[in-house]
């Protein structure tokens, strides 16, 4: 597990132990990666973060168009496991958890422990850093910097 923000590590470690999730990506709603577990290639993280953030954004827009408020979590359930995309508020920002899990756990368990992790992250967040604005022109360099730190390169 690697995290850009040290205060995320403890809640994420606990979540991984409790939920038996295989892959985890914590990111901002703009797709900036905060922490990851299980990914071995930075390219994968980049693609998954971009796609995950896009799915949450489109789902939110769909909810807005349908006047349905918030649609909450997005779950893709497959034969051998599933993917949970779970946005949660952190201060005035929205963070997103992307969790890939197998048959050794269940959607219910992953959701229950995800709620606990989100609560712990909210309690641990210092506030100022999580509220940092990432400007569009800074996005790519910020992403490169994040990936280098996440993969130790």
């Amino acid at each position: 597990m690697r995290a850009l923000e040290p205060w995320v590590e403890s809640p994420l470690t606990e979540f991984l132990a409790e939920s038996s999730a295989r892959l985890v990506l914590l990111m901002t709603s703009s797709g900036q990666v905060i922490a990851q577990h299980g990914f071995t290639r930075s390219l994968d993280v980049m693609s998954v973060a971009a796609l995950g953030a896009a799915i949450v954004a489109s789902t939110g827009e769909l909810a807005r168009v349908m006047d349905a408020g918030s649609l909450g979590h997005v779950v893709h359930q497959g034969k051998h496991g599933g993917v949970l995309l779970a946005p949660f508020p952190l201060g005035e920002k929205i963070w997103i958890g992307l969790i890939v899990f197998g048959q050794d756990t269940s959607l219910g368990l992953v959701q229950v422990f995800f709620h606990t992790m989100a609560k712990q992250i909210r309690e641990a967040a210092p506030g100022s850093r999580s509220d940092e604005q990432i400007l569009a022109e800074q996005f790519e360099s910020e992403l490169d910097r994040s990936l280098r730190r996440l993969f130790g390169r």
Binding site: S106, L107, G108, V112
Partner: peptide
Amino acid sequence: VVDAIDGIVVAESSMVGTDPAPLAALAAS
């Protein structure tokens, strides 16, 4: 009533203070 594979609530009736979601998830597990 719990979906035993996904560990999620299908139907429930609980007194105030009992959260059915963790109950369903952990019961299925």
